[in-house]
Nucleic acid binder design. Sequence first.
DNA 1: GGCTGATTCCTAGAGCCTCTAGGGATTGGA
DNA 2: TCCAATCCCTAGAGGCTCTAGGAATCAGCC
Lengths: 197, 197
Amino acid sequence: MGRAGLSAAKLTEAAAEMADDVGFEQVTVSALARRFGVKDASLYSHVKNLRDLRVRIALLGGEEMTDRIATEVAGRAGKDALVAFANAYRRYALDHPGRYAATQMRFTPEEVAAAADSAGMRRSIELTYGMLRAYGLTEPDLTDAGRLLRATFHGYVHLEFSGGFNHPREIEESWARSLDALHVLLENWPRHDRKNG
Amino acid sequence: MGRAGLSAAKLTEAAAEMADDVGFEQVTVSALARRFGVKDASLYSHVKNLRDLRVRIALLGGEEMTDRIATEVAGRAGKDALVAFANAYRRYALDHPGRYAATQMRFTPEEVAAAADSAGMRRSIELTYGMLRAYGLTEPDLTDAGRLLRATFHGYVHLEFSGGFNHPREIEESWARSLDALHVLLENWPRHDRKNG
DNA sequence: GGCTGATTCCTAGAGCCTCTAGGGATTGGA
DNA sequence: TCCAATCCCTAGAGGCTCTAGGAATCAGCC
């Protein structure tokens, strides 16, 4: 009988699809092996262990998400860019809940350091900063506002996922109004006072 | 030999401590049984299954967190209340990472419905709304702003936990400035236009 | 084609986990 | 004292991760 033709990349892609289908926490080495008609021990030649597999899903998700956001934000500035960024972020999470959940894992310092080197991470930061510069922000406000935005986007999506919103119908409108509010916030950002660190 | 004197409440409390110690995902029926010097099968008379145990941790954490926030916010209004609320929220999460992680589980609709009946949930909503009313907000802005705040607080804590911040030393300052910004945001909230739902 | 080395996938098995079924021990109350 | 409820146990099925070592298959080379 022929081989399944496995590779780390193929496994990661399949695992990501599996995560979107059945939930990130349900992604398991043995279930993935089953999907390829192969024994679970076979996967350990391609992937170090379960955690390694999950981190790979996270990196894949991060890259894809950054790609989407980048194409949506391209050529926009100000509120246009903010809304495009936020919507691309949220839509990716809704389209790929498993991959998105992977990106929200708790990483070890080593994993963070490794990921920080990746192109995706840097591009993602570039995108955010570019957007914020259009609001006239400079460091350290750039960092602070960036953190606040990332936190808010993630928090909103997370709440939406975890059923924290009681009236699902109004989510779209709530989200739109939150973006209005964030735009106002960025325009009125309480600037850092140089004299009074 | 005597009995261990187990009960659902005792198990939940011990499981919560365990979650804070070793991480929410490491909380396991057999590990918990070991802690009580008892066989794992014994716990299943008190707790339905692992998920049940985890949901109990979440409810306990939610109650405790609401208590803390309530006492901190009591007697304050405006920015004072906002800062007290936010700091109590964040501090609880940092003090009890396992319990906090539990509150951020993905719940089934039934679990959400059950939790929505609990006193803690209602009190938590009351607290938020009371705070926002002091900013002169009314529905539906109350709902939208409340969602945005909850999302932001959670997102910030989550980012902090997951190592999303590269410069740990500046987190405190970033957080303080984000609270300033949120205060400004609430004062300049783009009010709902009744004519144009 | 035949050889060779690397890679792929396998079997076997240890160890840990969840959860069920059913039975003996311990308790508090009648 | 005795009964019923409750607690905790043993036994066991089944799933998961991961290691060790062996057999099959592939690619490239003569």
